[in-house]
């Protein structure tokens, strides 16, 4: 077989194939639920109900989507320039660490000065972690997939060391957790009595900013050019390595904001489990969004909905929550295939 580009894909093709991909994902997930001894339709209903069925559930989904928007944006920005940042998890934790370092009393400033300072410091910290693999890529052409992956393990161990050492809460009864942030360092809630913090607002603003950068700025143009064809970009006079470094700064900073928002908005202190793999899930979010920053918001809500819904479904129907991860992996693989088939026709020869 060989692939033949389609000049003008029809609307039915462009929308139909992704729909088929999602449908196939749902069918396979239903079969797996049946194997677990549950009614497939009730399982799917329970997931939707658990994610969006009540005000509480919806707010929970929005809260869960917040870090995923940040990590999804981080991945989308990097992948667009073909900088394979698989290290959003490490960058998230760096952001969280610096939020705790500055937010537990080291700076006794009012909130309007303290919060932006912490956010910028967190972003810088996250950016630095990604700069190391990016520098190794541009200088020594070391593949950044492996280095960013390996750094995830290094940073997580470092955080574990801090939580048992200098960042350990003296009042923590021996648990490896940090002290709580002072009130000025906490992100306020969006509305009184609503269990949703401003991290979500910041995530939406970030998505908009990234969209503007990609669509309206020279940097956005350069990042796309480097991603499409580095050799051609270099020939056209685009500083390829400088563009990759700027991409890394943006991407690492965005991932670090996820850590900032989780600590300052949701948890109030740092533990070793603030992220159940948000950095890795960000890759799925970005791919489902086709690397579009505004699409990342939608994809993050979808992914968060599946996770939150699966949690409550699991309690009700007794199907393991890992069904959520399986659905996401299947959706990812089916979706990249479907998107490719909207642009190419398969020919036998």
């Amino acid at each position: 077989m060989r692939l033949e580009p389609i000049a003008n894909p029809t609307w039915t093709r462009s929308l139909g194939l992704p729909a088929v991909a999602l449908f196939a994902t749902v069918v396979v997930a239903s079969l797996l639920a049946m194997i677990a001894g549950a009614q497939p339709f009730s399982v799917l209903g329970l997931i939707v109900k658990g994610a969006f069925g009540s005000k509480f559930a919806t707010l929970e989904t929005l809260n869960r989507a917040t870090p995923l928007i940040f990590t999804g944006l981080a991945v989308a920005v990097a992948f667009r320039a073909k900088l394979w940042n698989i290290g959003a998890e490490a960058q998230l934790y760096m952001g969280a660490v610096f939020t705790v370092v500055l937010g537990t009393g080291a700076l006794a400033w009012p909130a309007f000065a303290l919060l932006p300072t912490i956010a910028v410091a967190a972003m810088l910290a996250g950016a630095v972690v990604l700069l190391v693999p990016t520098f190794l890529k541009t200088r020594f052409s070391v593949d950044e997939v492996v280095t960013t992956l390996l750094l995830n393990f290094v940073v997580l161990l470092w955080v574990s060391m801090l939580l048992e050492g200098s960042l350990k809460d003296p009042m923590g009864l021996g648990w490896p957790k940090s002290a709580r942030l002072i009130a000025e360092a906490r992100l306020p809630r969006i509305a009184e009595g609503l269990r949703l913090h401003w991290g979500f607002g910041l995530a939406l603003i970030s998505a908009l900013v990234v969209w503007v950068i990609q669509r309206r700025s020279t940097l956005g143009y350069e990042m796309r050019a480097v991603g499409l064809n580095p050799a051609a970009a270099r020939f056209a006079g685009i500083p390829v390595n400088a563009t990759l470094i700027k991409t890394a700064l943006l991407s690492g900073g965005l991932a670090a904001l996820a850590g900032f928002s989780e600590v300052a908005g949701l948890k109030g202190n740092l533990t070793l489990d603030i992220s159940p793999g948000f950095g890795y899930t960000g890759i799925i979010v970005a791919m489902l969004a086709l690397l579009n920053p505004l699409g990342v918001v939608v994809a993050a809500l979808f992914v968060a909905g599946i996770f939150v819904g699966a949690d409550s479904m699991s309690r009700a129907a007794g199907v393991p929550t890992y069904l959520a991860d399986i659905m996401l992996a299947l959706a990812l693989l089916a979706m990249v295939l479907a998107i490719m088939l909207t642009k190419f026709r398969v020919r036998r020869d």
Partner: peptide, 10 residues
């Protein structure tokens, strides 16, 4: 890259 990570997750 994407397929490999997807396979790992799956």
């Amino acid at each position: 890259h994407v397929v490999g990570l997807g396979i790992t997750l799956l």
